[in-house]
């Protein structure tokens, strides 16, 4: 796992130096959120906050998630990575982790914006809201990181990533929206239990599957 940590560390250094991913992602989330608000009655928008939140998160996230692999493309650094004497699953772990960090930070801003702009009671039960967001974040990052590794190598990469990921994300979106709705309306975590269980299962299945399948995926 030290290899994964080293790759992650390098990616974070690059992100801090260029700040390409995070700043763009946050602005994009804000813009999608505003677009939603203008398309709805702002007074009743708080009601739709969970749905707005996750649709915003998923679409903005899909735009940002390929970056973890795109920064390996310049000068063919990707092949340098494959030459290293490491288990290639570690590359998946590192890329997923860097996506979790970048998306997670943007997600915190998104939740704050929801509370601010739509008056969503997102901060009523902060711990519960954080847990739901975290579970949704992990599953999204696992699945989208795996398919980003594929889409960056396709010609129509901007088009193919959403095509590949959105149908597979349906269970995550359903459960994340419903769980958010429960905890934002002051429900206990236990009352969102069924949704959270599916989310957690999703997270585990696709994190493990991504890690296991990655070696096969990068083989040429």
């Amino acid at each position: 796992m030290s290899a994964a940590w080293r790759i992650l560390h390098k990616d974070l250094v690059l992100e801090l130096r260029t700040r390409e991913a995070l700043s763009g992602l946050i602005v994009l989330m804000l813009l999608i959120l505003l677009t939603f608000t203008f398309a709805m009655d702002p007074e009743g928008a708080g009601e739709a906050a969970p749905a707005v939140q996750w649709v915003t998160f998923v679409f903005a996230g899909l735009m940002a998630i390929q970056r973890a692999f795109l920064l390996e493309r310049e000068n063919g650094a990707w092949y340098g990575l494959l030459l290293c004497p490491i288990d290639r699953g570690a590359i998946f772990v590192a890329k997923m982790a860097s996506n979790v960090i970048v998306l997670g930070l943007a997600q915190l801003v998104l939740v704050a914006l929801l509370a601010l702009l739509l008056g969503a009671p997102a901060l009523a039960a902060p711990a519960a809201v954080l847990l739901v967001n975290f579970l949704g974040l992990i599953g999204f990052a696992a699945l989208a990181t795996l398919f980003a590794a594929i889409s960056v190598r396709l010609r129509a990469r901007e088009m193919m990533l959403p095509l590949l990921v959105l149908p597979l994300l349906v269970p995550l979106v359903i459960c994340a929206v419903e769980a958010s709705r429960v905890v934002m309306n002051g429900g206990s975590l236990a009352s969102a239990g069924a949704w959270l269980r599916v989310l957690a299962t999703f997270d585990v299945i696709f994190s493990v599957a991504g890690w296991m399948i990655f070696e096969q995926l990068v083989q040429e």
Binding site: N75, L81, L83
Partner: peptide, 29 residues
């Protein structure tokens, strides 16, 4: 792989890292 070194057409170097950081990254890998 530990016993192989490859110099290809592309340099495999990260443009936004310094020369030292690049080498250190590979040395640690």
């Amino acid at each position: 792989r530990r016993r192989i070194g490859l110099v290809a057409h592309q340099s495999f170097l990260y443009p936004d890292l310094t020369a030292r950081e690049n080498l250190l990254f590979y040395a640690r890998m």
